[in-house]
């Protein structure tokens, strides 16, 4: 089979944890967009969902930091955060070890990926799942790109990882859905939290929606940090989805800066 669904979404913890502090109308528009994304995902009838995330030191630390990693377990647990703070209760999330292993073996042919038989999800995966698979029935294959602790893998390696994921999805009989989760410009968890560079975001999303590979690969982390905060390193997750669907345009269904959520909230899908 192949990819039956691909898209990207935000994962900021405030989206759920600080929902009551946001402009209610803005929150409702975002939640409606998440619901629409969930409907699109379910309509594609996937057997499993690969979540390309930028986790935040829940599993991977600077003592042993992989640039790219994928989960290979029959179940995962999350969130690691205080459930009251995140607004999501601790739960067990199904995986599929056999499918993971087959995908990972294929990805390894093109990309140097690490695997992990244990994985605790943080908000980077739990917030998207809270909206997209709230019953926690769909098997999840977590994937992580180090977007937190430099040195980070260059953007072209994230592109290669996305291409490898596509080849892997094409190589298995299961119907595979794929999402990337991350922020565009943002300064998460710092004193600048809430600052959003909307112009920067809209330019990147325009490039993303046109699958403009050259434009996306031209970003420089040092400049991105100055212009768009350390959270902008997470564009790797969005670009991975572009690489997995190279040549196909995407549609940005929702983009709106919501400062209390600390990010320009984004919901977009690839026009598969």
């Amino acid at each position: 089979m192949s990819l039956v669904f691909a898209g990207v979404c935000s994962h900021a913890p405030g989206i759920v944890g600080r929902a009551d502090q946001a402009d209610p109308a803005a929150k409702d528009r975002l939640y409606d967009a998440f619901a629409d994304m969930r409907n699109r995902l379910e309509a594609s009838e996937p057997d499993a969902l690969i979540v390309v995330a930028a986790e935040h030191f829940a599993n991977f630390f600077m003592n042993n930091m992989p640039s790219f990693a994928m989960g290979m377990a029959d179940y995962y647990e999350g969130p690691i955060e205080n459930p009251d703070w995140l607004g999501i209760q601790k739960t067990r999330i199904p995986g599929d070890k056999s499918l993971s292993e087959r995908l990972i073996r294929k990805v390894m042919e093109r990309s140097d990926v690490s695997y992990a038989e244990e994985w605790k999800f943080d908000h980077g995966i739990m917030v998207p799942l809270h909206f997209l698979t709230p019953s926690y029935k769909l098997p999840i294959i977590p994937a992580n790109i180090n977007c937190q602790g430099p040195p980070l893998a260059p953007l072209n390696r994230a592109w290669a990882f996305g291409q490898a994921l596509r080849e892997a999805a094409d190589s298995v009989p299961e119907r595979i859905a794929l999402i990337g989760t991350g922020g565009i410009s943002h300064w998460p968890a710092t004193p600048d939290s809430g600052k959003i560079n909307e112009e920067w975001d809209r330019r990147f999303l325009d490039e993303w929606s046109r699958c403009d590979k050259d434009a996306m690969l031209s970003y420089d982390d040092t400049q991105s940090y100055i212009d768009a905060g350390q959270g902008a390193f997470e564009i790797r997750t969005f670009m991975t989805i572009s690489a997995a669907t190279e040549g196909i345009e995407g549609t940005v269904h929702f983009y709106e800066p919501i400062p209390i959520f600390a990010v320009g909230c984004t919901i977009a899908t690839i026009n598969l």
Partner: peptide, 8 residues
Amino acid sequence: VNGQILMH
């Protein structure tokens, strides 16, 4: 300390 660690 990285904010992602400090936030938690």
